[in-house]
Amino acid sequence: MDPYFAYQYLSQLETTVPKLARKEDVLWYLFTVGGLIIMINRIFLDSAMFLQGLIVAMCYTVVQDQRGAKANFFFFTVPAQLIPYCMIFSSMLMNPGIIPLQVSGIVAAHLHDFLTRLWPEFGGGPNWLPTPAFMSRLVETPRILKRDYGTAIRNPAAPTSGSSTGASTGSVLPDSWRTRGSGQRLGGE
């Protein structure tokens, strides 16, 4: 079930969490929370494992903005903010050895949420874990891309909404084709 939960909560992080709106914010979240989980596990549990903690941390972060909503956990409907605790409870029944790893995930996710959202919004303090600028450079498309069959140069000032293809005018034809005339149907009169 770990790959399913990892995919499910990572895709929800990318699409539903407002504080992680950009790709670099999600990547920075994974670096910081993963690093915190590894540090907590290394110091307190003498372990370097972190997947179980990371899954619970991603779940905790996703459900923080869904307070008051109902969610399904296997066959049960529970309040959305209780899903991480349901995961820990199910581990208590199936594999109690991973519970400390999952608790470290909740601690790391709560610490990240406190330092990036709660303290700046309600405490009036600074964001202690802002996404650094180098993360934006890591995820952006390179301006010049060397290929086996040529070189592609991306113009960052060019519109990316498809307006050069005629998509914004309501026609399916590109601009260069619209100037050619009305055209004739083949095989017709």
Score class of each variant (00 low, 15 high):
Gln64Tyr: 07
Glu24Met: 12
His110Leu: 14
Val56Ile: 04
Val139His: 02
Met49Arg: 09
Cys86His: 12
Trp128Met: 11
Asp148Arg: 15
Pro142Thr: 07
Tyr4Ile: 08
Trp119Lys: 13
Gly183Trp: 04
Ala71His: 04
Cys86Phe: 15
Thr160Met: 13
Ser91His: 08
Ile55Trp: 00
Thr151Trp: 05
Ala109Asn: 03
Ser47Asn: 06
Asn72Leu: 13
Ile88Gln: 01
Ser91Tyr: 06
Thr151Ala: 03
Thr141Glu: 12
Ser164Arg: 15
Gln102Trp: 00
Met87Phe: 04
Arg154His: 14
Leu51Asp: 12
Tyr29Phe: 10
Gly105Trp: 00
Thr160Asn: 14
Ser104Phe: 01
Arg178Ala: 08
Tyr4Lys: 09
Met94Val: 14
Lys146Phe: 15
Val17Arg: 10
Pro120Phe: 02
Glu189Ser: 11
Ile40His: 02
Ala157Pro: 03
Phe44Lys: 00
Phe76Leu: 10
Tyr85Lys: 09
Thr131Gly: 00
Pro84Asn: 05
Gly35Ala: 04
Ser161Tyr: 15
Gln102Val: 00
His112Gln: 04
Ile99Val: 10
Asp46Thr: 06
Val139Ile: 10
Tyr9Leu: 06
Cys59Met: 07
Phe73Ala: 08
Ala69Cys: 13
Ala69Trp: 08
Asp113Pro: 03
Phe31Trp: 12
Ala133Met: 11
Ser90Thr: 06
Leu111Thr: 14
Leu45Arg: 03
Ile55Ser: 01
Glu140Cys: 13
Leu13Ala: 01
Gly34Phe: 01
Leu20Gly: 00
Ala158Ile: 07
Ser90Gln: 03
Gln8Lys: 14
Ala6Glu: 10
Arg67Asn: 08
Thr116Ile: 02
Leu36Ala: 03
Thr151Arg: 09
Ser176Arg: 13
Ser163Ala: 14
Ala109Met: 05
Met92Pro: 09
Arg143Leu: 12
Ile43Arg: 02
Ser164Glu: 15
Lys23Asn: 14
Ser91Arg: 13
Gly162Phe: 08
Ile83Trp: 01
Glu140Arg: 13
Lys70Val: 08
Glu189Leu: 10
Trp177Val: 14
Leu118Tyr: 15
Leu51Ile: 13
Thr169Met: 09
Phe74Ile: 14
Asp113Trp: 14
Ala109Ser: 08
Ser168Leu: 15
Trp128Ile: 08
Leu30His: 04
Ile88Gly: 03
Met58Glu: 03
Leu115Phe: 09
Lys19Glu: 12
Phe122Ser: 11
Gly124Ile: 02
Ile88Asp: 00
Pro156Asn: 09
Arg178His: 05
Tyr60Thr: 14
Gly97Leu: 06
Met49Trp: 07
Arg137His: 10
Leu186Cys: 04
Ala57Met: 01
Phe73Ser: 05
Val63Ile: 09
Glu140His: 10
Thr15Phe: 05
Pro132Arg: 01
Leu93Val: 02
Leu10Asp: 10
Pro156Thr: 07
Thr77Phe: 02
Phe114Tyr: 14
Phe75Gly: 08
Ala69Val: 11
Arg22Phe: 11
Asp175Met: 12
Ala158Ser: 09
Gly183Tyr: 06
Pro126Leu: 11
Thr77Gln: 04
Gly150Ala: 06
Ala158Asn: 08
Gly35Ser: 03
Val33His: 01
Ile83Leu: 11
Thr61Val: 08
Gln66Tyr: 05
Phe5Thr: 06
Pro120Thr: 05
Thr77Gly: 00
Met39Trp: 02
Asp2Asn: 10
Leu82Asn: 10
Glu140Trp: 04
Asp148Thr: 14
